[in-house]
Amino acid sequence: MLGTGILKGMLETAKNFAGSYHDPARLTTVEYPEQRIASKENARQFPFLVHDTEDPMKGLRCVACQICEKECPPQCIYIVKSKDKRADYKGQMQLYPVTFDIDLSVCMSCQICVEVCPFESIKMDTEFELSNTDRFGGLLVNKHQLAKSNDHYRKIHPSEAAASDAALAVEVAKAQAKAKADVEAKAKAAAEAKAKADAAAAATPVGAVPSAPQPSSPATGPAAAPAA
């Protein structure tokens, strides 16, 4: 009979209408901003820089290697390297970023900077309420705004952060083992040991100091070895 299809459809909308008062499957929206849906663990919005110490600027893991700047598809990262070096989390002397800016109005949250970073230093934040009245400057964030603690990272991405911490722990263990070996070697013969340490230092990854790594004193501070 003509019209049955329409009536069937109306019945369906009536069911949905009645259901929207009591059935959670029909009631899918929440009243933002009073109510919020919990963020997914994998969720990503914009990048931030991880730091390990109390003072965010001293503990930045970033060594200004500029890989993320190069790989970023829309070119929204801008880094200026430091002239001097300072000890990183495992006591190795590294450069650090004097300027680290991300233009969030250009960033497309693709996470490629996180994937290419060899130092576990840039990660994705879940903060999304970034509205700003300044169209350009307000979304151009510097390293002070970008720096967030490792605890924050552990809070927003627990399992990812655990993997990252484990990877760093392995690195630290390696560095300590090497430092120990170096000290023992030093005790044997000072002159020979120095040559060996130089060779070992030369074999360490990007940004390593070509001269003595000073492994026994990790807290030398940033002013310890001015770069040539």
């Binding site: 663990e41 994998n42 990503r44 693709c110 490629i112 994705m124």
Partner: peptide, 27 residues
């Protein structure tokens, strides 16, 4: 979209596949 977000981190701009596989394993 919720499924896709919990897998890839984004609802629509997933950027999930890589050459020779996928970016990360299923949560």
């Amino acid at each position: 979209l919720d499924l896709i977000e919990s897998l890839t981190g984004a609802r629509m701009m997933c950027n999930y596949m890589r050459f020779g596989g996928c970016r990360c394993d299923l949560p």
